[in-house]
Amino acid sequence: MTMKVLVPVKRVVDYNVKVRVAADGSGVETQGVKMSMNPFDEIAIEEAVRLREKGAATEVVAVSIGVQASQDTLRTALAMGADRAILIRTNETLEPLAVAGLLKIIVEREAPGLVCMGKQAIDDDMNATGQILAAKLGWPQGTFASAVTIADGRAEIAREIDGGTEVISLALPAVVTADLRLNEPRYASLPNIMKARKKPLETLDAADLGVDLAPRLTIVSVAEPAERKEGVKLNSAAELVEKLKTEAKVI
């Protein structure tokens, strides 16, 4: 049995960067800012590679949608163990709906048994692409996964829900979105980074794929959240309780 796993990955502002809102309120400053693979996508790649290592999958294909520089993100995925990569090039900022539309085209072409992706991107914080893709494909979904087991043509998924953990069983093919607790992604070793340079990376143009990419949401403005007023340092617990009672009036 062969099963291909498709892993969408996104190039985002590195999670350690404290972003600044652009002076004209049009967005966030991204010029000269460190970019990295979305942390949840690293977890998705790691899971796909582990499935291949366990023999549950035979090939891992990474796909990214974005500017030419997104190929760096794909090279990282290849260095972590993906077998090949596809870049769908666009200079537009796409919404999850358009991204899911493009991914559907790739899924139809590649016919993976599983799409494994991050639960959300840390830039737009949408948490939507996996669910939309599953809907468009008519596939079942396993979101916020903290464990994935493949057996007998089904995937058993442990999901993080508000009050604990839920386990569901999905018929393959399916879409799974990774939560933080799914695994600890590996670091790409130097030899693997070198090897990744030789792995195949195909480039397509988003505009050629016949998908409506027009945004449905217009950004009216982007603003800084209100600053909190400066706090005070206290010397003792007794003083704190006093302040909470008389000044803040919260206890």
Partner: peptide, 16 residues
Amino acid sequence: RPIYAGNALATVRSSD
């Protein structure tokens, strides 16, 4: 809606 871990607030208008 907040974006970038709440470090920015985006005002968006939907055409759907």
